[in-house]
Write a protein that binds this DNA or RNA. Sequence first.
DNA 1: TCATCTAGTACTCGTCCGCGC
DNA 2: AGCGCGGACGAGTACTAGATG
Lengths: 340, 340
Amino acid sequence: MSSSSGPGDQSRRPTLADVAARAGVSPGTASLALRGAAGPSAASVQRVRAAAADLGYRADRAASRLAARRTRLLGVVLTIRNTFHAELAEALQDAADDAGYQVLLHPATERAGESGAVDVLLDSRCEALLLLGTELPADQLTALDARTPVVLVGRRAPGLDVVRVDEADGTELAVAHLANLGHTRLAHVTGGSGEVAGERREGFLAAALRRGIGTTVVDGAFSEDAGAAAAPAVLASGASGVLAANDRVALGLLDALRRTGTDVPGALSVVGYDDSPLARLGHVGLTSVGQDPPALAAAAVRLAVERLDGGREQPVDVIVEPRLRVRATTATRDDEERGR
Amino acid sequence: MSSSSGPGDQSRRPTLADVAARAGVSPGTASLALRGAAGPSAASVQRVRAAAADLGYRADRAASRLAARRTRLLGVVLTIRNTFHAELAEALQDAADDAGYQVLLHPATERAGESGAVDVLLDSRCEALLLLGTELPADQLTALDARTPVVLVGRRAPGLDVVRVDEADGTELAVAHLANLGHTRLAHVTGGSGEVAGERREGFLAAALRRGIGTTVVDGAFSEDAGAAAAPAVLASGASGVLAANDRVALGLLDALRRTGTDVPGALSVVGYDDSPLARLGHVGLTSVGQDPPALAAAAVRLAVERLDGGREQPVDVIVEPRLRVRATTATRDDEERGR
DNA sequence: TCATCTAGTACTCGTCCGCGC
DNA sequence: AGCGCGGACGAGTACTAGATG
């Protein structure tokens, strides 16, 4: 371990002034040279760069932002245990980087909640806030947006910038996939009576109707148990393909089907929803409708930057296309009549 | 949306000077009052607080840290998709808060890697670095530690502060649990030939030996498929309890057992390892040995603070006790002879 | 005279410190 | 001693004026 002389041990950290002195230029020139900005001659840039390298100099980001009078910081509030948020966060990092911004992540914790995270981000002078799946009340969001641009990801709110995936597009994708595989009778296990579950059910029915596909809807809930409980009804429906309201429902369903000896995907194709890590498990290999984190992230950053640099005032609602991850639980319909 | 006048819209953001002027005190006094530091009279504190509230003033964290000559920032590098890291991060936030520090999270992304994250954290003048499951080479870690205190979580490196869970303790916990349930013959499905897998195997054997419990070791790998492949050997061993090398192995094993109609936990108790979200799935309910994120986080923060504020120089290796999450896959041994 | 380059100063926003009352 | 003020300071960036060719 080092024998440092105290917390931070900044006593010996080189500053811009040290670099400038060593290169024989003024701090202002050194600053420009290190940032690659126009002004300094090639010779100066050379000497400054060399001096910085010799000293191991790295600019203090906080000081830079303070002096620059803007931070180019995008604050992101996320539920960090949520793997979808995690993927989004990673994609946001890249998207922000491409736009010349940096991301500041702050999890909504049990203790401080979402508003605690927002406070930290605001106190860090983030120029915009990207809220992932926020549960903050609409009036708070509106008030927030009046001070600092807010972009919502995965949740709607009137008058605010939103990036999301349309449920109708997702169910359409799933039904189209099953239809292309030759299935002419489909079942849907719902996720209950909530808003999202309702949109998925309606989307499923509409997509099937457009194709003249016969449907059976089995009421359920967003849980494995509900999926398992729905198995008999699904089997009795005569459908050769099922869309589950989400991956958990699909997993419960698969589990129950396995117990009854139903061949998946031979006798029955199963599609999940959310493309959660569960779907990707080797022994599961669930075909699932998922969101597209890089696309969502790119759109979210774009909206924020438009407001910051482009001066846009009107809220925008961006709908990103979902994507279907085809894995092992779907296959072409067996030509044989399913005998059971 | 707001009709702000530009990026950041800092034109109208109140500063400490505004608060001080409104309260009729100097900025220095206002600063002390807002921080609750000793000095100002009760009356001054009142007026300053009121002025700050009126103006909606919130201190600029970056400016505060710059002026304070220390940041009290702990940098955390994590793999954000890793749910275990996510839990740790959340626990670290709380632990740091309790110690009067703030956490700055930065994911190791595909693009910039771990060292990119370290650079950002260092440029933000973090006073210590907490690396979760780092894969950085030992010499880089040592070099880093010479400038800024480094605490490793979940990975050992000579000469550095480390916080981790001992594999022997974890396997002991699992075997003790099964022994207490009356099991006298146990099987272990290994995770292959790696270091961690080896430690778990040895730990299992030692714990069983101490209790005079008969053992069977089935070679495997850290995958669902390996778990499924091990099922026949486990059944043939006559064991009434199994410890899988990790949850994925346990899941594959459970899957295969279900197909053979083996009753879990009636005929066979199964214990996993890692207490991953998989284990917690409703329809799985896997008993599993897990790490204790809050305990690891508390220890990691403690080590960092000891070096920063306590001046500790010698590296410390902290071993945190694992915890066993008992769920639905373990039960007392059936008194009947298992007939099959 | 006009680019090009550079130095110098003002400024960002708080905190620390010495000094007076 | 308790309280409060003014100013230096931290590490950079922006801007202006001037020097150079």
